[in-house]
């Protein structure tokens, strides 16, 4: 479904990715783990078109995204929940969700998407008239995910959904991720919490200073002594 081929990314003089190749098959959950600054968010920004590769290519369903504007990538079925939530603080919860459905045509379809998101996050239904900036961190994370789901993506890019959440909320976010997967959405998940990520994922890639150093099934990565030492804190 998604394929990166030998991609380099530069931020000005800084090279953030070095020849990164990875693949996400339809229906899978793939996780990307790595230390701070390894380039995980950069990979997601690359897929959603916020930044462009200096070498290599990004293919979505076989077509290159090189010349596709970020908003048109959304139209192709890719939603990106960016790092740090980035909800529209001055807009209400409902308005944020409506923005997530910006490209969805028809009131009925938007209504249906909204019901689905409210079912997934009942808290958002209660808070729908509230300005997003006044939500708690966990609620904002739910809103960020719900907003991305409003567009009914086929590929969902999640950047550290559990960051800064209390342990029980982390559990429920991963529960939600499993639920999203059951709806047939493909996921590329960036996580600091490698424990949880490897538990929910089918495959994983390990990124170190802009290079993929390891990739395998999630099970085998979780059993790998190097991974255990570096990312699972054992």
């Amino acid at each position: 479904m998604l394929c990166l081929r030998d991609v380099d990314v530069h931020y000005g003089p800084i090279q953030a990715l070095h020849g990164v190749s990875l693949e996400v098959a339809e229906g899978q959950v793939v996780t990307l783990i790595g230390a701070n600054g390894a380039g995980k968010s950069t990979v997601l920004r690359l897929v959603s078109g916020l930044i462009r590769p200096t070498r290599g290519e990004v293919l979505f369903e076989g077509a290159s995204l090189a010349r596709v504007a970020a908003h048109d990538i959304v139209a192709r079925g890719v939603s990106h929940v960016p790092e740090g939530r980035r909800v529209f603080a001055g807009l209400t919860v409902l308005e944020n969700l409506e923005m997530g459905a910006y490209l969805v045509r028809g009131r009925a379809a938007i209504r249906a998407a909204l019901d689905e998101v409210f079912e997934l996050f009942p808290r958002l239904r209660e808070r729908r008239g509230q300005r997003a900036g006044t939500l708690s961190g966990g609620e904002q994370q739910m809103l960020a995910i719900g907003r991305a789901l409003m567009g009914r993506p086929r590929l969902l890019l999640l950047d550290e959904p559990s960051l800064g959440l209390a342990p029980n909320l982390v559990q429920s976010i991963f529960g939600v991720i499993a639920g999203i997967r059951q709806r047939g959405v493909t996921l590329l998940l960036v996580e600091q919490n490698a424990h949880m990520a490897l538990r929910v994922a089918d495959r994983g890639y390990v990124l170190e200073t802009g290079r993929i150093v390891l990739h395998d099934t999630a099970e085998r990565l979780a059993a790998d002594p190097n991974v255990r030492a570096a990312y699972l804190g054992e």
């Binding site: 959603s48 939603s79 980035r86 529209f88 807009l91 923005m99």
Partner: peptide
């Protein structure tokens, strides 16, 4: 509020 996040919604900025 956030031009990039708006792009990620599919908004043609």
């Amino acid at each position: 509020e956030d031009r990039q996040a708006a792009q990620l919604m599919g908004i043609n900025v």
